[in-house]
Design a protein around this nucleic acid. Structure first.
Length: 555
RNA sequence: GCACCCGUAGCUCAGCUGGAUAGAGCGUUGGCUUGCGGAGCCAAAGGUCGUGUGUUCGAAUCACGCCGGGUGUACCA
């Protein structure tokens, strides 16, 4: 409908003034109409004409469009369109655009590292990534959800060193003594110990460097036998099992697969070799570096002086691997913004080998996840904000505020609390507010949905497909529902799920206003109004579904 | 130093491909209930959109400077 009117305006404009403008309609305050268009204002000066005259001429020409009941010229030259009731009904039924139809999209997010805990940032990208992936999927994309994590690297060296210390030597059988429900906790304690030793103890540091090398060797030699390797594989498995358990609890869409860093070492190193020959990379102080200064960036180490690949080299390998396996149209990576500059260097280096891959990549970044009150968290020493801390906080706040806590509401609280904020800056998560019985929260929307369902349940089964002339309150509601498809399209284009949150909340408010003033069950307009309620509940549920939030029938 | 990000109501945030009186939630103050789920609705108070200049018919939105906060800046990820 929007596109049709834009087209009509463009044609009318061309008829009148020859010039062919790009016409964009936007939503406007209901007091002005349904859509507004400022093309006259934009082009008036260029055509040396008074914008109001242009607008008047356009309005006259557009007045016979059946979808439009009135075109008014307002202010300095806005064209305000009021749609017919028929058009509104049609729009409320329209589906979001299949703008990604047939496209292959990779979505990489969450990315926790084995041997470490899942922290609040991982939780955030898990939830946002799931929503972004769902949005793209509904737009027709073939989405592959990928999870990449460091099963090799310095942090593993640190953890493995401390694990062996703890076990009093390379005794894999002693791992049996660690209770199954405490494995993740136990591993992260070892990691913290290893990190402390690495930073404070010179001899430990040397040992950790050696242990790190040995971990790489496990993969290079495909070692499943040695005592050291057995410890490694067991602990890595513990990590993956722990991650899976959390994802299941979160009720997010399952990942298609994990890509462990160890698998991208080889392809990464091959690119480094090639790049050294071609002069893309150079040796410096025993390390292999990419000099980013020539591109306005900075120099980064891709292979350290011990001959081990850094994250940079592995990321090159990851990109190559993804490309070979999927030949994607778009590859999204969601991470914290502290690696933004880093990623630019990697992408620049990558563009020498896979220019198309570099072009099709999209890096979404987010800020710190904080609790209210600005509690400082050090990522170094283990006193970080963990994923489970957030979930626990939501649950106890739910209990405290509402006197009861269900999994549905607690999860909705966390997910909506994260998602309603624009992806980019720091995220403040307030458990109290997120479970809030009033206000802009996940549980509020769940309640709004349940209430609508309850009205429908109360009504006698009747024809809910009645359309017809609308009264003001009905019209406002239907008008708002018609925005849904546009909002989803916008969220897809911008990869910004928060637009969906903002909209759903506004929709619920619009409904509540309607509901306050209009009876549904038993009213002479019951059939038509039931149709509106039905459509509202469905829209709400669908929107929440895209955000990964369930909408129960009852609460 | 250089690069990038951020600065909108007491708090947490929308709005940013320039447009009509800058919007929500929480909190504060007041009102609405013999009615479909009051977890609601209505209303009030609260803003030099960090700051200055510029571009424009028009700037929270674009450009540049400044102030304030954050992150990155060679062998961590």
């Amino acid at each position: 409908m929007k596109a049709e009117i834009e087209q009509a305006v463009a044609v009318a404009f061309q008829d009148l003034f020859v010039a062919a403008p790009e016409v964009l309609l936007s939503r406007t305050d209901e007091q002005f109409g349904d859509y507004t268009c400022n093309v006259a204002l934009e082009l008036g000066p260029k055509l040396n004409k008074n914008p109001r005259d242009i607008a008047d001429a356009l309005a006259k020409k557009l007045n016979d469009n059946p979808a439009i009941t009135s075109v008014e010229v307002a202010g300095p030259g806005f064209l305000n369109f009021k749609l017919s009731d028929d058009a509104l009904w049609k729009m409320a039924k329209s589906k979001p655009t299949q703008s990604m139809g047939g496209k292959v999209v990779l979505a990489e997010y969450s990315d926790p590292n084995p041997f470490k805990v899942l922290h609040a940032g991982h939780l955030y990208t898990t939830i946002v990534g799931d929503a972004v992936a769902s949005l793209l999927q509904q737009a027709g994309a073939e989405v592959h959800r990928l999870n990449y994590g460091g099963d090799v690297g310095l942090h593993v060296g640190r953890a493995m060193w401390a694990i062996v210390e703890f076990l009093g030597g390379e005794h894999p059988e002693k791992l049996d003594d660690v209770p199954a429900d405490q494995r993740l906790e136990w591993l992260s304690e070892r990691y913290v110990e290893g990190t402390t030793a690495d930073e404070t103890d010179e001899s430990a540091k040397a040992e950790i460097t050696a242990v790190n090398q040995r971990v790489y060797s496990i993969h290079a030699d495909n070692d499943r036998q040695s005592a050291f390797a057995q410890i490694y594989w067991t602990c890595r498995q513990w990590s993956y099992e722990g991650f899976d358990k959390l994802y299941k609890e979160l009720q997010v869409t399952a990942f298609e697969k994990y890509i462990p860093e160890s698998e991208v070492v080889k392809p990464g190193m091959e690119i480094i070799e090639k790049g050294l020959q071609q002069g893309v990379f150079e040796k410096s102080d025993g390390a292999v570096v990419y000099k980013g200064e020539k591109d306005g960036l900075h120099t980064r180490v891709f292979v350290n002086s011990n001959g081990l690949p850094t994250y940079e080299a592995k990321d090159l390998g990851l990109a190559a691997l993804k490309w070979q396996q999927y030949h994607f149209d778009l590859s999204i990576i969601i991470t914290a913004n502290d690696i933004l500059e880093y990623m630019k260097v990697v992408v620049k280096a990558l563009s020498h080998f896979y220019p198309e891959v570099a072009k099709r990549g999209k890096h979404l970044t987010h800020g710190m996840i904080r609790l209210p009150g600005n509690q400082k968290m050090s990522s170094r020493k283990g006193n970080i904000l963990r994923a489970v801390d957030i979930l626990d906080a939501a649950e106890s706040a739910n209990q405290a505020v509402n006197g009861k806590s269900t999994k549905e509401t607690s999860l909705a609280a966390v997910k909506y609390g994260f998602l309603k904020q624009r992806v980019g800056g720091d995220i403040v998560y307030d458990p109290q507010e997120s479970v809030g019985v009033q206000g802009n929260s996940g549980p509020y929307l769940q309640y709004a949905h349940a209430r609508a369902r309850s009205i429908l349940a109360k009504a006698k089964a009747s024809d809910q497909s009645v359309t017809g002339e609308l009264q003001p309150g009905e019209r406002s509601l239907l008008r708002k529902m018609g925005e849904y498809a546009e909002v989803i399209d916008k969220a897809v284009t911008e990869l910004m799920p928060h637009h969906v949150c903002t909209y759903l909340y506004e929709l619920a408010q619009t409904f509540n206003q309607f509901y306050e003033a209009n009876h549904v069950v038993g009213d002479e307009r019951e059939a038509l109004r039931l149709g509106l309620v039905q459509s509202y509940a469905t829209t709400l549920k669908h929107g929440l579904g895209l955000l990964g939030i369930v909408a129960p029938e009852k609460m």
